[in-house]
Design a protein around this nucleic acid. Structure first.
Lengths: 151, 151
DNA sequence: GGCTTGCTTGGAGTGCACTCCAAGGTCATA
DNA sequence: TATGACCTTGGAGTGCACTCCAAGCAAGCC
């Protein structure tokens, strides 16, 4: 899963001074975060995080001795990646498929690469479409800006 | 509504030789298309076209003497634009708002421009996000391509 | 005239991605 | 040890953007 020990930026400071130093930013923590800390990091809701786990999009999250979730930096990396995939418009089902491949081990490298390459193509198409749209928007905007100096 | 008489490319030829010359490609037709012709043009379904009209996303489509829809080139231009907006991820409600402004006339130019400019900003953000994602994908893909020469 | 194909409507149904709820257990601080 | 914020679960609910359905009218062809 080629997880690099990514040092992320301080992220949203949120209410860092109201509570007794809730230890928000990722870098200075150890490797066990509560669900609400992960919420603060990723911008996902707790509901969504639990849901991701239910549908098999998260590789088993560790638990405290009382059964509460404790996310690792590795989990956070995974969530970052999933978030990126999500905003390409990739369906959750496909992401689950990828997660399965990761669980299955190294002999799925080929299929994983194929999946990512297909996603890559989709992204390129999407970018091209957006550029097109941008051109249309610019034409309309400049029309409204010049012609539309009403009042 | 600054509708330019856009001459579009031949689009999908479809089953142009099976039926008695169904007059598919836009350019050579006059200004009245049936719903199924519009389906062939836009790739939208008839359901969606009727739904767009119901929710106020279409500026009143003309009807035949028996009440069937007859779309004009102007309508087709509008649909092209709507389709572009749609794939920026703009919510349909916002597009309806824009359609309302168009119906209200020239004194809404300012608001229309503001709406399009905000959309434009969204598109730029989106493109930047996609570029980011592309970088991540490329890293992973090249990892799988080199490291992953299993078998 | 009969058949097929296409169009009409209001309203109900679908699929996706969350999003929320109730009921209860846990944790940190005063 | 009590208070209040936080966490747990399964299952139900939500919002968006379609998508489909049934019932019926209309047009073109044999």
């Amino acid at each position: 899963m080629q997880t690099t020990p990514t040092a992320t930026e301080p992220a949203t400071p949120a209410d860092i001074c109201s509570a007794p130093a809730r230890r928000h930013p990722r870098p200075d923590g150890q490797d066990r975060y509560t669900i609400s800390e992960v919420v603060a990091f990723t911008g996902l809701t707790a509901h969504t995080l639990r849901w991701y786990e239910r549908i098999g999009l998260m590789p088993h999250v560790d638990r405290s001795h009382t059964g509460q979730r404790r996310y690792s930096n590795r989990d956070l990396d995974w969530l970052d990646f999933v978030t990126k995939l999500r905003l390409t418009g990739m369906p959750v089902a496909d992401m689950v498929r990828y997660a399965e491949l990761v669980r299955e081990g190294e002999n799925t490298y080929d299929e994983r690469r194929a999946l990512l390459e297909s996603t890559r193509r989709d992204v390129l198409t999407r970018v091209a479409e957006l550029r097109d749209t941008l051109a249309v928007l610019d034409r309309k905007i400049s029309f409204y800006a010049t012609e539309g100096n009403t009042r």
